[in-house]
Simulated assay, not measured.
Amino acid sequence: MAVEARRDPDRSRGAIARIAGQLDVHPEALRNWVRQAEIDGGQRAGTTTEDAARILELEKENAELRRANTIRRRGTHSTCRARRSARAGATTAAAPRARR
């Protein structure tokens, strides 16, 4: 309804505000919905709803992979420290004792 009103030059002036009043929504909300509908319909440049959802999904996956890598790195560092401690303990334990 609002998209068609914007296309018609005779009705386009003030169409969003008029239709928003009829639908009892804020004019800016309706303007954003119309803009997104035009983008999704290929009539206007921008990020489609489908693309935005895919980007959000990829960002979540990327964050999860970063968390997993951080955990893996911390585990590797802990393992290296434990090995060094074990070697240091083995070295001191294997040292010969002084005779009395």
Score class of each variant (00 low, 15 high):
Met1Tyr: 12
Ala2Thr: 15
Ala2Ile: 02
Ala2Val: 09
Ala2Met: 08
Val3Tyr: 09
Glu4Gln: 12
Arg6Ser: 14
Arg7Ala: 12
Asp8Tyr: 03
Pro9Leu: 14
Pro9Gln: 15
Asp10Asn: 06
Asp10Gln: 05
Asp10Leu: 03
Asp10Ala: 07
Arg11Ala: 11
Arg11Met: 10
Arg13Glu: 13
Arg13Gly: 05
Gly14Glu: 02
Gly14Met: 03
Ala15Glu: 07
Ile16Ala: 13
Ala17Leu: 01
Ala17Ile: 01
Ile19Val: 08
Gly21Arg: 15
Gln22Tyr: 07
Gln22Ser: 10
Leu23Lys: 06
Asp24Arg: 12
His26Arg: 10
Glu28Trp: 11
Ala29Met: 08
Ala29Trp: 15
Ala29Lys: 14
Leu30Gly: 06
Leu30Gln: 08
Arg31Leu: 06
Asn32Met: 13
Arg35Asn: 14
Gln36Met: 00
Ala37Val: 00
Ile39Glu: 05
Asp40Cys: 00
Asp40Val: 01
Asp40Ala: 03
Gly41Met: 04
Gly41Lys: 12
Gly41Trp: 10
Gly42Trp: 11
Gly42Arg: 11
Gln43His: 14
Arg44Val: 01
Ala45Thr: 15
Thr47Ser: 12
Thr49Asp: 07
Thr49Val: 04
Glu50Trp: 07
Asp51Phe: 13
Ala52His: 09
Ala52Pro: 00
Ala52Ser: 05
Ala52Met: 02
Ala52Cys: 02
Ala53Tyr: 13
Arg54Asp: 04
Ile55Pro: 01
Leu56Ser: 07
Leu56Val: 01
Leu58Met: 10
Leu58Gly: 03
Lys60His: 06
Lys60Arg: 12
Lys60Ala: 09
Glu61Gln: 06
Glu61Tyr: 05
Asn62Arg: 14
Ala63Thr: 13
Ala63Ile: 12
Glu64Asp: 07
Glu64Ala: 11
Leu65Trp: 09
Leu65Gly: 03
Arg66Thr: 15
Arg66Ser: 12
Arg66Gly: 04
Arg67Cys: 02
Ala68Thr: 01
Asn69Phe: 04
Ile71Ala: 15
Ile71Tyr: 09
Arg72His: 12
Arg73Ala: 10
Arg73Asp: 03
Arg74His: 13
Gly75Glu: 10
Gly75Lys: 02
Gly75His: 06
His77Phe: 12
Ser78Lys: 09
Thr79Asn: 04
Thr79Asp: 05
Arg81Cys: 02
Arg81Met: 05
Ala82Arg: 06
Ala82Ile: 05
Ala82Val: 05
Ala82Tyr: 04
Ala82Met: 05
Arg83His: 08
Arg83Asp: 00
Ser85Phe: 05
Ser85Ala: 14
Ser85Tyr: 10
Ser85Arg: 11
Arg87Glu: 07
Gly89Ser: 07
Gly89Arg: 06
Gly89Ala: 09
Ala90Ile: 01
Thr91Leu: 05
Thr92Cys: 09
Thr92Pro: 01
Thr92Glu: 11
Ala93His: 08
Ala93Arg: 10
Ala93Ile: 01
Ala94Gln: 12
Ala94Leu: 08
Ala95Thr: 05
Arg100Lys: 12
